[in-house]
Amino acid sequence: MGLGVKAAHAGSSILFDTASNWITRLQTAHQAGRLEAELKKSRRYKLIIIDEVGYIPFDQDAANLIFQLIAPRYEQGSVMVTSSLPFGRWVETFSDDVVAAAMIDRLVHHAEVLTLTGDSYRTRQRRELLAEENRAHRD
């Protein structure tokens, strides 16, 4: 999310949420007959961020809603997606290999794909805290 913060500091308009919250937002709009208005609103932002893709599998309707969020932005606006899954496993999350492939195709064309390795900042912070506690107990 550091890249999203940098983009915000540079003056970009950003809309951020987790994948599950995006689904909830889009389902609510769809049920209220406002899906197109919600999608149109999201297109006003220079960057949308979809965090935590792959933690919770989506049914086909949810996968289609996420696709409707991403597809119109193709070559029109930026999308940042975070996931702990490689693209080859996205079909597990999106329940439909066609939707998963179409989404990946739009996301990776003209994209910079970053693969991060090592501890997350949460794991690193926890390890540092435990090390500090151990040092304090020894002293």
Score class of each variant (00 low, 15 high):
Leu47Asp: 07
Ala62His: 04
Lys40Arg: 07
Val99Ser: 01
Pro72Val: 11
Leu65Gly: 00
Lys46Thr: 07
Ala37Trp: 03
Thr18Asp: 06
Arg73Cys: 05
Arg135Met: 13
Ser84Lys: 14
Arg122His: 13
Ser42Cys: 15
Ser20Arg: 12
Lys41Val: 06
Ser12Tyr: 07
Thr115Gln: 11
Ser78His: 03
Leu26His: 02
Ala7Asn: 10
Glu38Asn: 02
Thr18Gln: 13
His9Thr: 11
Ala101Phe: 01
Val53Trp: 04
Ile104His: 05
Ala8Ile: 07
Gly11Val: 06
Ala10Ile: 03
Leu107Gly: 00
Ser42Arg: 12
His137Gln: 12
Arg89Trp: 10
Arg89Pro: 00
Arg127Cys: 06
Glu36Pro: 05
Arg124Glu: 14
Gly54Cys: 01
Phe87Val: 02
Gln27Phe: 10
Ser20Phe: 10
Gln125Gly: 05
Ala37Lys: 09
Gly4Cys: 04
Tyr74Arg: 08
Arg122Pro: 07
Ile104Gly: 06
Leu35Tyr: 12
Gly11Thr: 11
Tyr55His: 07
Ala62Glu: 11
Ala136Ser: 10
Ala131Ile: 03
Arg135Phe: 12
Val81Ala: 01
Thr123Cys: 08
Tyr74Asp: 09
Glu133Gly: 03
Val79Arg: 15
Gln68Glu: 13
Gln68Asn: 12
Arg25Lys: 15
Gln68Lys: 15
Gly11Phe: 11
Arg106Thr: 13
Ala37Gln: 14
Ala32Val: 07
Arg25Gly: 00
Val99Ala: 12
Val81Lys: 09
Thr123Ala: 14
Asn134Gly: 06
Ile56Tyr: 03
